[in-house]
Simulated scan of single mutants.
Amino acid sequence: MNGRMQGVLRCLAVAAALLATGATNLASAQDRVAKSNDPQTQTAVADYNAGNLGAALNEFHQAAERGSRLAQFNYAMMLLNGEGTAVNVDEGKKWLRKAADANMSHAQYVYGKMYDDGEFVERDPAEAHRWFLKAAQQGHVQAELALANQFLDGRGTERDNKQAFVWYKKAAQGGDMTAQYVTGSFYERGGDGVDRNLNVARAYYAAAAAQGDPAARLKYQQLSAQLRDQKEVKPQ
Rank of each mutant, 00 (worst) to 15 (best):
R10K: 12
Q6C: 01
A64Q: 06
N197I: 12
R202Y: 11
Q42D: 08
Q40Y: 04
S185I: 12
A50H: 04
Y109V: 01
N74P: 01
V233W: 15
S105N: 05
A216C: 01
R155K: 14
K134D: 04
Y75R: 00
Q42F: 05
R97H: 06
N74A: 14
A63D: 12
Q173T: 01
K35S: 10
K93V: 07
Y48H: 04
G174E: 09
A225S: 12
A126S: 09
N2W: 06
R123I: 10
A55P: 00
D117C: 02
A201T: 06
K113I: 04
G51M: 07
A225K: 11
D213I: 04
Q163M: 14
A207E: 14
R155T: 10
L18M: 11
D153H: 04
N25F: 15
A135H: 06
L53I: 12
S224R: 12
T183M: 06
V33H: 06
A126P: 00
A13H: 02
V14E: 05
G92Q: 04
T21A: 07
R130H: 11
A20G: 08
Q40S: 09
F73M: 15
G7L: 09
L79F: 07
Q226V: 08
D116H: 07
P39S: 14
V233P: 00
S185N: 13
Y75H: 13
Q142F: 10
K35Q: 15
G3D: 11
R196H: 03
Q40P: 00
G212K: 08
Q137P: 00
Y115D: 02
D101P: 00
L12C: 09
L80P: 00
M114F: 14
A135I: 05
A148Q: 09
K35T: 08
G174W: 12
G190R: 01
V194F: 03
K169F: 02
A27I: 01
A56D: 05
A107H: 07
E59A: 06
L26G: 06
L26I: 02
T183Y: 12
S28P: 08
L133R: 09
N81R: 15
K162T: 05
Q30W: 10
A136S: 03
A15M: 09
A179R: 01
Q221M: 10
M104E: 14
R202I: 06
A210S: 07
K93R: 11
L80E: 03
R123L: 14
A136T: 02
A13V: 12
M78N: 12
S185C: 05
